[in-house]
Amino acid sequence: MTNEAILLGLAGVLTTAAPLIFAVVGETISERGGVINLSINGTVLLTAMGGFAVSVSTGSLLWGFVAGMVIGALVALIVAFGSVTLKQNQVAIGFVLALVCRDLAYFIGNPYMGLEGLRLPSLDIPLLGDIPIIGTLFFNHDLMTYLSYLIIPAAWVWIFRTRPGLVLQGIGEKPAAAFVRGSNVRRLRYLYTVLGGAIIGLSGPIYSLSVKAGWKGTISGLDGLGWIALAITIFGGWNPIRAALGVYLFAFLQWLGLVLQPSLPGVPSQVLQVAPFPLMIMTLLLVNIGNTEWVTRTLAVLPAPLRRFFNRLLRAMRASPPAALGTPFESE
């Protein structure tokens, strides 16, 4: 494999990661506010189909992406209505929506299957794109890939460095305290769930209008991506930057699996394709195991230096969810 092929391959990793970046950032924002949007897997499929269908019918890429955002926001609105207003189980509502949206995508998308559609053009950035290596790697992509770079720091700054972001953390961690300080917890939860849904809604059209252009029904290869996005959100510890690193790691591993395939004839492609998942389970284990009671108990009996070492190690990896994640808020 030549150096140039490797470079192009790595550049491709950034493009294939773009839709997952949007899904993960959108989910992170929603969960920061205390609402799990478990419907992503369906939302990605429905917005991929919807975005493609709208862009085919209108002849406009822009409307395709707008349709994706609207659909994503609407699905999230149902999650918010069910969980914030009706106080039903978020997991139940989200899971059902994941299935409904998937089946709706296949059902409504049937007549659009295999149609020729628009494709997001590549957009080389002048000057930056001409820098050797770095230009090829980062600046010879399409618009949505560039936006995917930008949304990561933007979401991070919003959550951790602004006043509204502080309130967002508050309604996810201690909604009662945020309420006492004058925040309208219910309205804000609606707002961030719908906003997160709209961002998630961009990921589908990025697939169907760029990364895997077209709509091919059940063989589109998109089923399952939303579940991956959910897992990476957890891996990311509800921090957009860490979550984005998770997405890039995942996309890189999938690419590596494809590349290594020919040189490892004894290992079937299916095994390498799935390698990220056991890894994901392992990382979730490492991230969470510090929170379990038996680990605390075991650590307590270890000699002090050893205990300090393990404590530091676990603390570095640990991620705890927003304290009020998944629970309804009662103001009275």
């Binding site: 478990l38 997991v91 399952g224 579940w227 959910l230 897992a231 957890i234 079937p268 299916q270 095994v271 394709q273 799935v274 998942f277 056991p278 994901m280 389970i281 979730l284 284990l285 969470n288 195991i289 510090g290 929170n291 379990t292 038996w294």
Partner: peptide
Amino acid sequence: LKTYGGVNEIFGGLGLNFVATALTLWLIFG
């Protein structure tokens, strides 16, 4: 994974679903 590792059963289960599918494909083609 849930009881001893603190991994939510939704995500542990999802990951294992993918592994199971891959295992099936590997057996069928291997």
